[in-house]
């Protein structure tokens, strides 16, 4: 095991942790708009770290290019899908719960 392998171990551990965090956030956060933030964690950090860890283990430049393209595509479409969802929910009349600083009571759940 050399230095690159250790870096890729660390990256994959961070990525796995970020994915679990996103899943837990989907379950634990109180309302739809808050849960959307959890979805963003997996798109950005989870996939980023896991793919970076895999890129360090890849055997050919072709694999590197593919990992890069998939990540770029997800970075482009993930936020767009979440934005479309949140906008549709807002237009359908779903009200975001507000915290204490804006007069709501969604501080804890």
């Amino acid at each position: 095991m050399n230095v690159l392998d250790i870096i890729s171990w660390v990256l994959i551990l961070i990525g796995s942790f970020a994915c679990l965090t996103a899943g837990l956030g989907l379950i634990r956060l109180p309302d739809f708009f808050c849960r959307s933030h959890a979805g963003g964690i997996m798109d950005s950090l989870g996939m980023g770290c896991l793919f970076a860890g895999m890129a360090l283990q890849s055997s050919s430049p072709l694999v590197l290019v593919k990992l890069f393209f998939i990540y770029g595509f997800v970075l482009l479409t993930g936020p767009a899908a979440i934005h479309a969802l949140a906008r549709a929910a807002l237009h359908a009349g779903l009200k975001p719960q507000l915290g204490k600083s804006t007069g709501g009571d969604a501080s804890t759940r």
């Binding site: 990525g15 796995s16 942790f17 994915c19 679990l20 996103a22 899943g23 837990l24 989907l26 379950i27 739809f32 849960r35 959307s36 959890a38 979805g39 997996m42 989870g46 896991l50 899908a81 979440i82 969802l85 949140a86 549709a88 929910a89 359908a92 779903l94």
Partner: peptide
């Protein structure tokens, strides 16, 4: 692999729990 599988399980749980249809679509997206 185990972490990703657990995440899938959690997302599936949210898709089943709802409560709004947007929660379900978000969960399926994740």
């Amino acid at each position: 692999m185990i972490a990703v599988l657990l995440t899938m399980l959690l997302a599936l749980a949210r898709a089943l729990l709802g409560p709004t249809v947007y929660d379900r679509i978000l969960a399926v997206n994740s």
